[in-house]
Design a protein around this nucleic acid. Structure first.
Lengths: 141, 141
DNA sequence: ACATCATGTTTCGACATTCGAATCTTTCTG
DNA sequence: CAGAAAGATTCGAATGTCGAAACATGATGT
């Protein structure tokens, strides 16, 4: 299946990006969340990454040591720790991730509206199949 | 992007499949290779999974202990160890993985030839973009 | 033949990542 | 205002991975 190869190429990109930044894959996913959602509480990262609170703490530790995020107390709730991206993280984003979106958008220009509709429908259909099969497999039959 | 969600759904399926079989994700990928390629030498698994030889040995150990594969000496080259799937593995395949392919094929029936062409072209284009960006990121600039 | 080198896998010790349970602080509730 | 709940961290244990060394087998040159 061609989808398989696409998956592998995503994997290869993530791998390359992580290596470039000197991070592991988990840290990279965490950074992605922080960049996408602005300052987020640690617990939010925990659920987004499906990691235990303990593991999340150490992920944030590593990113902080790498200079990619900073912790700050939430003024409205001092139990919370807010994690925010640093300038270094934003510049990494600009250098590594933004061009991917641009290249992707560029590549899509060759398709007409009808074709884009088909593509979008396909993506949703494929996702539907995967989710359906995942729940089937999860069932304790 | 919708591709992101598709990726996540693949991830969720793999997660569910691994949990169902009581394996970790690496072991599952290994089993996938063995099922797909018939009896394979351990070194082949090592490169397919991008794991060190040492790690590969322990992956095979775990799968063997789980009753999913068996080791046998390659008659033509006794340094080699051939890893083959067991009946238990084939039945797991039939129960978990085969239906995914069937459901996928079924879902594709709603598209006409032209639409399938567009979809295939898109998948290849997307992969091209990802690979291109991966090599860009890998460059030591 | 045979010493030497190359190939393929395994063993061993070390390191990194994750988890569960316990702890600590802050906030909510009766 | 005492006790429970929420949010994050610390600690020790378990798991997965690696590099280097070891081991067995096969290939090569003289």
């Amino acid at each position: 299946m061609e989808l398989r190869r696409l998956q592998q190429s995503f994997d290869a990109f993530d791998e390359a990006a992580a290596a470039r930044l000197g991070l592991n894959r988990t840290d990279l996913r965490c950074l992605d969340v922080v960049l996408a959602e602005g300052p987020v509480p640690a617990g939010r990262i925990s659920v987004a990454l499906k990691l235990s609170p303990a593991a999340t703490t150490t992920v944030i530790d590593r990113l902080e040591r790498a200079g990619m995020v900073v912790r700050s107390a939430d003024p409205g709730n001092r139990r919370r720790v807010l994690v925010a991206a640093t300038d270094a993280a934003r510049s990494a984003e600009a250098e590594i991730f933004v061009p991917v979106g641009q290249a992707g958008a560029q590549a899509l220009r060759k398709y007409g509206p009808d074709e884009l509709t088909v593509i979008l429908d396909f993506l949703r259909t494929a996702r539907g199949v995967q989710e359906e099969q995942a729940t089937r497999v999860r069932v304790v039959s």
